[in-house]
């Protein structure tokens, strides 16, 4: 019997779980996970399962903040309606290199040993088709949010993930990130034209909010918020 797995399952029981994923790296999963969490109408625990990059901590500017541990477990770092759980709060600013089996178990440990008391749980997954998706399937039912860019390379790879999710009976919401920018009354599509369930604009000012993403109220968040019903 695996107490770790039982505890991880228990922590997610009764929660609305959203998993932000992509088979391709660098498409904006972490930014979307962050903005989605900040846009949800209730309390959210945002768990960074990308244990190698730990981008969530960097986006919110808390990469050197230590997580507190009490009787209920590792306490998330509270920012607005969001509680952040990241390995960065445990290992701090250091590399994490792990063989596959340990990677799966660390993900389970991160869920099991955290105090998760919110209505929603959002997982920011690392790129690729790997252990993290299998681990999540083991622990809970979840709504997949698949992120891509309009680039042909990204679309091709993301289709593998969509095929897999379809086979597993899941209904993903596809977000096409960086799909256009507004130029006067015209929508310019520099990277190709692909219609997802939600198409997000390019906003160059977003870069200024890395480290304080919680203060961003620009175009990308606005469009995401208008389309929340397609996700939850």
């Amino acid at each position: 019997m695996e107490p770790l797995r039982e505890l991880a399952k228990d922590k997610l029981k009764g929660k609305k779980v959203v998993a932000v994923m992509s088979a391709k790296g660098g498409v904006g999963k972490s930014v979307i996970s962050a903005l989605l969490s900040l846009s949800l109408p209730s309390t959210v625990t945002l768990i960074d399962l990308d244990i190698h990059t730990m981008a969530i901590a960097k986006l919110f500017g808390v990469e050197n903040k230590e997580l507190e541990v009490d009787k209920e477990g590792i306490q998330p770092i509270k920012i607005k309606n969001v509680g952040l759980i990241s390995l960065a709060g445990i290992v701090r600013d250091r590399y994490v290199l792990l063989p596959g089996k340990n990677q799966s178990n660390v993900m389970k440990e991160l869920v099991a040993y955290s105090a998760i008391k919110s209505d929603y749980v959002v997982f920011d997954l690392p790129p690729g088709l790997g252990d993290e998706i299998l681990v999540l399937e083991e622990l809970t039912d979840f709504k997949p949010v698949v992120v891509t860019t309009p680039s042909k390379v990204s679309l091709k790879v993301v289709n593998y993930l969509l095929d897999y999710l379809k086979e597993r009976g899941k209904k993903p919401t596809v977000i096409v990130n960086m799909s256009y920018f507004n130029c006067g009354n015209e929508k310019v599509k520099p990277f190709g034209d692909y219609q997802g369930d939600i198409n997000l604009p390019i906003d160059p000012t977003l870069e200024d909010y890395i480290g304080r993403i919680q203060e961003y109220e620009g175009e990308v968040k606005k469009v995401l918020r208008e389309n929340l019903d397609k996700i939850v």
Binding site: V69, I74, I90, V96, P99, N102, E109, Y113
Partner: peptide, 12 residues
């Protein structure tokens, strides 16, 4: 410390 909280981190 990390190995106390998450023993599976040992190879890191």
């Amino acid at each position: 410390y990390p190995l106390h909280l998450m023993p599976e981190l040992f190879p890191a």
